[in-house]
Nucleic acid binder design. Structure first.
Lengths: 205, 205
DNA sequence: CACATTTAATAACGACTATTACATAACTGC
DNA sequence: GCAGTTATGTAATAGTCGTTATTAAATGTG
């Protein structure tokens, strides 16, 4: 299926690596801000190669997003799923969000999906669907972990997994925006403890 | 102070109205996506007039943001401050966010500050500061209302106004992103009641 | 070796980019 | 009405935009 055809001149660059390079350009400069020159230079190829392999700019953009969603692991999500204790897991998630948002290398535009892709849902067809898919997928992964904890008895039976998952994820967007505005990590750190409690607590129904 | 100088040919357009028009272009197309042609056409003026009054593109962008922050009232904030009952006020805030985020006219890129301006903090000098100012100002306005309720005795003495204000504002960003991804208003509406409770409740310290 | 096939590199395409010279028009003060 | 001042409209600048036609290079197969 994925075996290379033997005929013709072999490709001299790694398609996936080029796609990663393109993703970083879009991430750094945004869709409109990224020129084909920026892209070809970062990808290390000439424009005809780009067009023959990835299609036009919009098509390359879509492929870059799809590749990002399929392969790039989300640090906060990983932290949340790998920590045993649920309270520590929620805390680790928030910490990872802060780390991710404030220690962002150089000029990357915050979160690729939230800060870059979200701006093109009105102009580049297909991005809206990909963004929605990413959000709903994150909701589900977070809720799944809560469900597991409920089965283990670490969370009460009536714990609203899905609703708290969405709560957690929405809080994330606020932190990402604040980081983008240059608000210090320390000031955001100060709210984490209370937010962890809010997320995990069970109110009398 | 602000009186018009009498010498020379009088200006034939309203500077403020032109700035509003420019804001909408940036809001719709983003900073990079907005061309000077887009701007001059929407503003109803020729480029030399634009350059003489507003400076270059970046300068116009900054002025548009400043004007927006100074003059455009935020519907959710207004709803929050005008509603008497604090619980209804929080609810009204969230409802207004949903209304604002999902009923956004045509192609506006979500929230002007959160979805448009936030993307240029790395490339257009001054935008980061303005974005931060806007966020901190929102935090303060929300917290101020909570403080008033505490004085009235409608909220307990130990109610953490500032922290809940930030919580409220951060939740807003999540809703705005979801709306941008095309997630239905109804599904977001379903979480509002519980979130209002979370924001207003007082946990045992 | 020549052939078919695929990719690479050069260079160009017209359209559009942000910005500005220049000449003209409209006003105030004399 | 004339000088001084400011704004407007036309048109141009040099450069970059996304995209592609064309030619050369590199491979497997006959």
């Amino acid at each position: 299926m994925t075996q290379k055809k033997k005929v013709g001149r072999p490709r001299s660059f790694d398609v996936d690596a080029a796609l990663v390079a393109a993703t970083h350009v879009f991430w750094e400069k945004g869709y409109d801000g990224a020129s084909m020159k920026d892209l070809t230079e970062a990808m290390g190829i000439n424009s005809p190669s780009l067009y023959s392999v990835f299609g036009d700019k919009k098509s390359l953009y879509i492929k870059a997003i799809e590749r990002y969603l399929a392969n790039d692991s989300c640090a906060p999500m990983d932290a949340f799923e790998s920590e045993d204790n649920i309270e520590k897991a929620v805390r680790a998630f928030m910490e990872a969000v802060l780390e991710y948002a404030t220690q962002q290398p150089e000029g990357l535009r915050g979160c690729f999906m939230a800060n870059c892709v979200s701006t093109t849902v009105g102009t580049v067809g297909g991005t809206k669907e990909l963004l929605q898919e990413a959000i709903l997928s994150a909701d589900e992964r977070l809720a799944a972990r809560f469900d597991v904890e409920k089965e283990k008895g670490h969370l009460p039976e009536n714990f609203p997994s899905k609703e708290r998952a969405r709560l957690m994820f929405d809080l994330r967007q606020g932190l990402v925006l604040r980081a983008r505005a240059g608000i210090s990590r320390e000031s955001m750190e100060a709210d984490l403890d209370i937010r962890v409690c809010l997320i995990l607590q069970t109110v009398a129904s």
